[in-house]
Design a protein around this nucleic acid. Sequence first.
DNA 1: GATGATTACGGACGCCGTAAGCATA
DNA 2: TATGCTTACGGCGTCCGTAATCATC
Lengths: 296, 296
Amino acid sequence: VELRDLRALLAVVNLGSFTAAAIELGYTQSAISQQVAALEQELGQQLVRRRPVRPTPAGERLAEHAARVLLRLDVARSELRHLSEEAAEVRVVACPLASPELLVGALRELRSSNPLLRITVRTADAARAVAEVASGLVDAALVDGVSGPSEPIHIVDPGLLLSTPIAEAPLVVALPRGHPLDGRGGVDLDALVDAPWIVAPAFAGTDVQSRFGATPRRSPRLVYEGSDLPTLLALVAAGLGAALLPALGWGGFDGVVAVPVIRPQLVHRTELLTLRTEQARRLPLVQAMRSRATLR
Amino acid sequence: VELRDLRALLAVVNLGSFTAAAIELGYTQSAISQQVAALEQELGQQLVRRRPVRPTPAGERLAEHAARVLLRLDVARSELRHLSEEAAEVRVVACPLASPELLVGALRELRSSNPLLRITVRTADAARAVAEVASGLVDAALVDGVSGPSEPIHIVDPGLLLSTPIAEAPLVVALPRGHPLDGRGGVDLDALVDAPWIVAPAFAGTDVQSRFGATPRRSPRLVYEGSDLPTLLALVAAGLGAALLPALGWGGFDGVVAVPVIRPQLVHRTELLTLRTEQARRLPLVQAMRSRATLR
DNA sequence: GATGATTACGGACGCCGTAAGCATA
DNA sequence: TATGCTTACGGCGTCCGTAATCATC
């Protein structure tokens, strides 16, 4: 098993195409084919079904392992780079709904204490944010997700990155006004399991489905790949589906009502992710965020 | 970064010698030298100090990541192998103090329900046991360790292997009779932090040191690498040091007294480790152990 | 001076790309 | 028929081993 082969498998599984994987990795499609074939031969079983290109159960499992292995290696590289050089810049990535008020407060404090520091902020979905911390593209990521109360969200292997709890907010379901559940004081997610959901990766709706979707592999009725909250809410208002959001961070929106989730017991949680290096721990931004965080 | 290079680094760091690493991996010492040099060049910093051969902080960190990466790849390989073939044999490895009475009970039940099944049992220390589950050498490992009450012991990345809690027992310090603490109803480990400890990897004393040893990197006065409990207790009786053990599983021993650990709150915990495959979950042994386990 | 890591160099193997083959929409 | 994965084959690069060099105990 070689890393090159794992990268190939992962790209093929994620992109659903040998050709696309080849382009992404900078090989010819022939090379990708050979790499995947080598893996399959070595492991003695098919990993990807062709035409259409879909992973077998074994391939799916291996791709999962491969993703974690490659992520850890990214982290390792970044950590070693951090060990030697010192940063004169702070780069942050944040998920759209990840309690930004905390971030801007911390940044203002940071700026006033060090006016010369170059600061970069960008938004991305949680998966990309994690990848960017791992690869060293940014120094910290403010990611959000859904979890049990005062329980960490698990985006990557626990312990791989340093995670600081920042905030928790009640979870609500955004529904079109007039929906049967409109007006309820609280809602059980099981009651909505067959309802049309809007899956919006940028808004941390992905992991909930996998954790609480009673029906695995059900393809969502609508996927919103943007990161614009008003657009998402407009989709909800139009009756195209329900969306899972934190109670805070967005004002009212015409035609949309928010009903708190009361079962299962879930919260919207925000965490700050950095490398597990001393340098990261001592980042002024991290310090500031920590002192401001509402959670211990 | 290539897996081959990571394997080389890990072997060099663990064995403290390029030559020994070369023998272990089946290369010449020259090849190992080139592989480590390649890593160092690629990462732009020294990973291993020569003469004597010791890892730099960067090397230590990378070796840690390398170990986890390689372990995960072992697990991946084993899982895929399990997915295709069915086992006609049950192989178990257990740590010496890992609640063996549960194991033998489960094995007896297993034997009576399936007299033809070939069963293999072996003992090893926790680190080796984990490696053997990962590499597929055994189907399950009964490992013990020290943790907080009803808190899992973390030997590997959480989620990498399937872990079933089996039993917990109070933790005691084994001391020579007549020791100043002899007769106390309970002891605070901090009071013993500077005492001479006997480190016995086979008896799960390793991780406690790293977790609660106030003085990191202090070399223990005595290391017992065997797995024979009477020998260990004889060492204690001779006044060569104290040892951390579970309260159960060993009767009295002449010249040794056991004082319960009351602070920090720690227990001796036993868990059953298997691959995270359906096959492993359905192993009769696992089922039997589960139903017998005193923990939920 | 001996043990053990590094450097130099040649040969073999592996891997990728080009191009032809082939299956499926 | 066209798109896209597979197979065949040749060249290039890489990596390992042998052997000489060098440093440290």
